[in-house]
Amino acid sequence: MRRREFAVLAGPSILVMVGLLVLPLVRTIEWSFQKVDYGSPGSFVGLDNYQEAFSDPRFGKAVIFTVILTLIVTAVLLVAGYVLAVLVNGLHRAKPYVLGLLLVPYVIPQIVGATMFSWLFNPNYGGVLSYLIEKLTGAHILWMSETWPNRVVVSLDVIWAMLPFAMLIIVAGLQGVSDEMIEAARIDGASTLRLHLSVIVPSIRGVLGFVALISIMDVVRTFDALVPLSPQAVQIGNESIMLYIYNVAFQNGGQNLGLGSAIDVLLILLIVVLLLPFIRGVAKETRAG
């Protein structure tokens, strides 16, 4: 393909991305070195915002909360997504219906799903699960206002919302596993567990990597789920990095755009570090192909 053709075909998209993604991003990086109010130009303050971020214990807590949530959710998604995908893939006539049902949590907007989820656990709103759990175990658990129970609820909600996507991608990947290979392994006397661990999982490792990638990207940026599920996130230490940015940069009373931007930049650095292996993979393959 000639350079001019490339410019004609890819140009409009690149222009939109430069204008609406790169330029705003540059503005955010500028802001991170400034003290700034909405609508007026800021004044340069050097690294003050970064210093403030690192000296704020809330920021440290938010980072730890977010990273732990990401690791747990990603691990659960890979394992549960795989098991579920294998079960669904073994179905015949029922497969499309089961897939359709299982996809429901994924197509609901996250904030709406999290609102629904909160009604299962919030005793103020007649939470049915919190009620049943208390009836069965006798334990009075404060799902919405105690740190760890609330973390369980938040993790469950994020897993609930993302599991269908993980399953869907893995089901799609399983379509590419050849039947001959499975049959050969069976003839060699492999047990079911062995078959999965040594034959199927390695042959769809690219797909599992993709699931991990998407999960890391999305869970690191958790925000929507916390709005209904953790109304006291700040007090109980369940603030995600994104919620922290929102609270310092946009909430009434805390319009510190410079600090919020500095944390944005730090979050981007964290994400790039987490994605480094994937970025190397893309670069290598594109150059080869």
């Binding site: 991305m17 609406l20 993604l21 330029l23 705003p24 991003l25 503005r27 955010t28 802001w31 909405y38 990207m217 690191v220 940026r221 925000f223 990095i241 994104m242 940015i245 929102y246 940069a249 946009f250 755009l257 919020g260 931007s261 944005d264 930049v265 979050l267 981007i268 994400i271 790039v272 994605l275 994937f278 970025i279 893309v282």
Partner: peptide, 16 residues
Amino acid sequence: LVFRALPRFAVVLPMY
């Protein structure tokens, strides 16, 4: 890939 992973605020607050 990186922009897919970008925190929304980094572009949406300047857009505001």
